[in-house]
Design a protein around this nucleic acid. Structure first.
Length: 506
RNA sequence: GCCGAGUUCGUCUAGUCGGCCUAGGACGCAAGGUUUUCAUCCUUGAAAUCAGGGGUUCGAAUCCCCUACUCGGUACCA
């Protein structure tokens, strides 16, 4: 590459950032970083009716959490600002006018009602109304009205839009980095509105103008934009600008069925579709986020990177830096990828194992704080070291290791039934005494002593040890028994033994 | 309807210019091992006739054509 690329991620602040959008941003980021380029954040808020309070702040916070840093854009600044389209409003009109002056566009005065009527009419004949070369001469616009009338309407403040005027019967070629050459004939396209009656540009105009002004070299976006790519190349052509290179990414699909992954699927199947939890200001509804669900940001990034892209090797665990090095547009797949909760869980488990107890401590201390548990950090670190291999999510910690901080309030009935027999309480008291025999607890010595006693008296080992386990943990699960006792201390173990005896044998 | 894109194990995918593919890996699943328990972990296994049908070729998952299906677009939304 002879020039350093400039790419942008350009979300609309119409709600929380969808996980598919995160992946699009990630691919842009990886591409930019790999080529020592610039990653820009632009907010596309040209539709004032869909603006949602807090969405912009959400987007910025989400990328902070994920560790994807923008080099330029909203919240950062840069020499091509402003980066929010609503703040660029005055920029667009002259470009729309230039297009009209050059014969690439025209003013249209048709009311929404008139267009709706046309559509209905066509529908009745089982056709679709299209505002194009075949119909534009029968509509109310600057192509059909006398020049003076157009002037008059414009001057009097009549509502108007600017529509693109496709040349007739022309093949438009879009070169896509992922899909190759896509060709479509202009007769099939409708004269898209470029400039709305509220004085704002539509996505198409704003996007092209801004990408040009901001010197964007590569447009990496979702596949849903492929059908409007021909319009975009025509627009670059009409302005006489060099078009950026396009890459249209495959979609992220729901785990079951084939549709596009949506918020509903997440709620239904129990996984987040948003990076961060989102509280909708209008409906008051809360949607879960990866962060709040106990995912590590590195795991989310890694999982997303592999959903639609593959390095061609058998490596699956990648740090961000490794992704930057390994990434390539050519290896992005063409078909949509289904999100898999199991795979996401696996990635997160792998990343938890990669973390030290110290790394994990902030997550765990937060959980303990929420439970109002007072703790000693070095003790927590030991528990994390012992328990982290059992965690898929940091949020699993309490369920897996809560007994280190709180004596069991109840005992698993099934385990109890299987392990607790006549005389078990008596045996536990004998073991309890042996555990507390040394002035300072000696794990190895206690272990040997207890095992020897069990053998000598021909006790059922599984039964005795598991009932002790149930006393400590609350169920027949958990790590090595004597390690737990060592961590918990014999006094606490003594209390738990007495507690289970009084509860079970009363 | 029309236009566009896509189609390899249940899922994510490998598969450079056709031969090394009796199609490889990972997740998940099954069995076994480790563990006094549960989880982790280890080993092994089942799992795609490469959407279907025609070609081209000595030879095709890989090239061409047709069909089917899926998804996307078809707004003064992005």
């Amino acid at each position: 590459m002879n020039m350093k690329p400039r790419v942008r991620f350009a979300p609309s602040p119409t709600g929380p950032l969808h996980i598919g959008g995160v992946r699009t941003a990630l691919y842009n980021y990886l591409f930019a970083k790999q080529h020592d380029g610039t990653f820009v954040l632009r907010i596309e808020d040209t539709d004032q009716t869909r603006f949602v309070e807090g969405a912009e702040a959400y987007i910025i916070e989400a990328f902070q959490w994920l560790g994807l840093k923008f080099d330029e854009g909203v919240g950062i600044g840069g020499e091509f600002g402003p980066y929010k389209q609503s703040e660029r409003k005055p920029i667009y009109k002259p470009y729309a006018e230039q297009l009209v002056a050059d014969g690439w566009a025209y003013y249209a005065f048709d009311t929404p009602e008139a267009l709706e009527a046309k559509r209905k009419e066509a529908e009745a004949q089982k056709k679709t109304f299209q505002y194009d070369a075949s119909t534009r001469l029968s509509m109310v616009n600057s192509l059909t009205l006398p020049a003076e009338e157009v002037e008059r309407r414009l001057a009097s403040g009549d509502h108007f839009v600017v529509r693109f005027k496709y040349p007739e019967n022309t093949d438009i070629h879009v070169h896509d980095l992922i899909r190759g050459e896509v060709v479509i004939n202009s007769n099939l396209l409708d004269d898209k509105v470029l400039y709305k009656s509220d004085g704002m540009p539509t996505y198409h105009l704003a996007n092209i103008v801004d990408d040009h002004l901001m010197q964007i070299t590569h447009v990496i976006r979702g596949e849903e934009w492929l059908p409007s790519a021909p319009l975009h190349v025509m627009l670059y052509n009409a302005f006489g600008w060099e078009a950026p290179l396009f890459a249209h990414l495959p979609l992220l699909l729901k785990p079951d069925g084939n549709g596009k992954l949506s918020k509903r699927d997440g709620d239904r199947l129990g996984f987040p579709v948003f990076p961060l939890q989102w509280n909708d200001p209008k409906s008051g509804e809360t949607s879960s986020g990866y962060r709040e669900s106990g995912y590590l940001p590195e795991a989310v990034v890694n999982m997303l990177a592999l959903l639609g892209w593959n390095p061609g090797t058998e490596q699956e665990i990648f740090s961000l830096d490794e992704l930057v090095k390994a990434f390539s547009l050519e290896k992005i797949s063409k078909s949509g990828a289904k999100f898999s909760l199991d795979k996401a869980k696996w990635f997160n488990h792998e990343y938890i194992q990669l973390k030290s107890a110290e790394d994990l401590f902030p997550y765990i201390s937060k959980i303990l704080d929420e439970k109002s548990i007072s703790y000693n950090k070095s003790f927590v670190l030991k528990v994390i070291d012992l328990m982290k291999e059992r965690l898929n999510f940091v949020n699993d910690f309490w369920e897996q290791a809560g007994f280190f901080f709180q004596a069991p309030a109840e005992y698993n009935a099934q385990d109890l039934k299987k392990r607790w027999k006549e005389g078990t309480g008596e045996k536990l008291r004998i073991i309890d005494d042996m555990l507390r025999q040394d002035p300072v607890f000696d794990q190895q010595a206690a272990h040997d002593r207890v095992m020897e006693h069990i053998k000598a008296n021909e006790w059922n080992m599984g039964q005795v040890l598991n009932s002790l386990r149930i006393a400590i943990v609350g169920a027949a699960k958990g790590p090595e028994l004597f390690t737990m006792i060592s961590l918990l201390g014999t006094a606490e173990v003594h209390n738990r033994i007495e507690a289970i005896i009084s509860k079970v044998e009363s």
